[in-house]
Amino acid sequence: MAKGYPGFPKGGGNMNNMMKQVQKLQKQMETMQEDLKNKEVEATSGGGAVKAVVNGNKELVSLKIDEEVVDPDDVEMLQDLIVAAVNEAMRVAEEKMSSEMSKLTGGLNIPGL
C-alpha cells in the first residue's frame, strides 16, 4: 500500500493537474510579455518640453524636444531634461509590466519575472 507524505497526496492525479496549470500559466505569461513588448508608454519633463516614448522592451522609441528648450548656452539643462524624461518613461514601462504580471500571477513573487 502506497503511503502518502504530509502535503503530498497519494497517486499522481493532483500532480498532473498542477503541471497543466503551471503550463497554462507559463503560456499566458509568454503571451502577456509579447503583448507588453508592443505597448508604448510616454513621459515628459520640463513641463512637456521633452517627451520620451519607451516600449515594453524598455527601448527608447521616440524622443521629442521643443525648440524653445534648445539653448546652445545651456546644453546641460537639455541633457538633464532628456535623462529625466527617458528615466521616467523606463520607470513607467517597468511598473506597467510588473502590474500586468502580478495580475496574472496573483501577486506571487516569481524570480526572473
Results as ranks from 00 to 15, higher is better:
81 L>A: 02
75 V>M: 12
37 K>V: 00
107 G>W: 06
105 T>Q: 03
5 Y>N: 12
46 G>I: 04
64 K>D: 14
16 N>F: 12
109 N>A: 08
28 Q>Y: 01
20 K>T: 10
87 N>Q: 12
83 V>F: 09
24 K>L: 07
84 A>K: 04
91 R>V: 04
108 L>Y: 05
33 Q>Y: 01
31 T>P: 03
44 T>E: 13
85 A>P: 09
11 G>I: 07
14 N>D: 13
13 G>R: 14
97 M>F: 05
73 D>R: 10
45 S>P: 05
38 N>C: 06
99 S>D: 15
13 G>I: 12
33 Q>I: 08
84 A>Y: 06
29 M>L: 15
36 L>Q: 06
72 P>F: 01
34 E>L: 04
3 K>S: 12
94 E>V: 06
2 A>W: 10
55 N>F: 00
56 G>W: 03
84 A>F: 02
49 A>F: 05
2 A>S: 13
8 F>H: 11
91 R>F: 00
24 K>S: 12
106 G>N: 01
76 E>L: 07
64 K>S: 14
25 L>F: 05
92 V>G: 04
76 E>S: 09
100 E>R: 04
19 M>T: 08
46 G>S: 07
19 M>F: 11
36 L>E: 07
91 R>G: 08
97 M>V: 14
95 E>S: 11
111 P>R: 03
23 Q>N: 14
67 E>K: 15
79 Q>A: 07
90 M>W: 03
13 G>D: 13
67 E>W: 01
6 P>G: 08
40 E>A: 02
8 F>Q: 13
104 L>Y: 00
67 E>C: 02
7 G>W: 10
27 K>M: 10
34 E>Q: 12
51 K>R: 15
17 N>G: 13
49 A>I: 08
35 D>W: 03
50 V>K: 02
79 Q>K: 11
1 M>P: 11
18 M>Q: 13
84 A>D: 10
105 T>L: 01
26 Q>H: 07
106 G>A: 03
10 K>R: 13
39 K>V: 14
80 D>Q: 08
101 M>L: 15
6 P>N: 11
62 S>N: 08
44 T>N: 09
71 D>M: 06
112 G>I: 07
82 I>L: 06
17 N>Y: 01
78 L>T: 06
8 F>T: 10
39 K>L: 12
95 E>I: 00
51 K>F: 05
1 M>W: 11
28 Q>L: 03
58 K>E: 13
76 E>R: 08
81 L>M: 06
81 L>D: 08
96 K>G: 10
74 D>P: 00
78 L>M: 09
61 V>G: 00
33 Q>W: 02
11 G>L: 01
89 A>K: 04
68 E>P: 01
39 K>A: 00
1 M>C: 09
17 N>H: 12
75 V>H: 03
110 I>H: 04
86 V>I: 14
76 E>P: 00
84 A>P: 05
43 A>K: 04
101 M>V: 15
19 M>Y: 05
90 M>R: 08
94 E>M: 07
79 Q>S: 09
110 I>C: 05
92 V>Q: 12
12 G>F: 15
29 M>W: 05
14 N>G: 14
91 R>L: 07
11 G>H: 09
27 K>S: 13
98 S>V: 08
22 V>P: 01
77 M>P: 06
74 D>F: 06
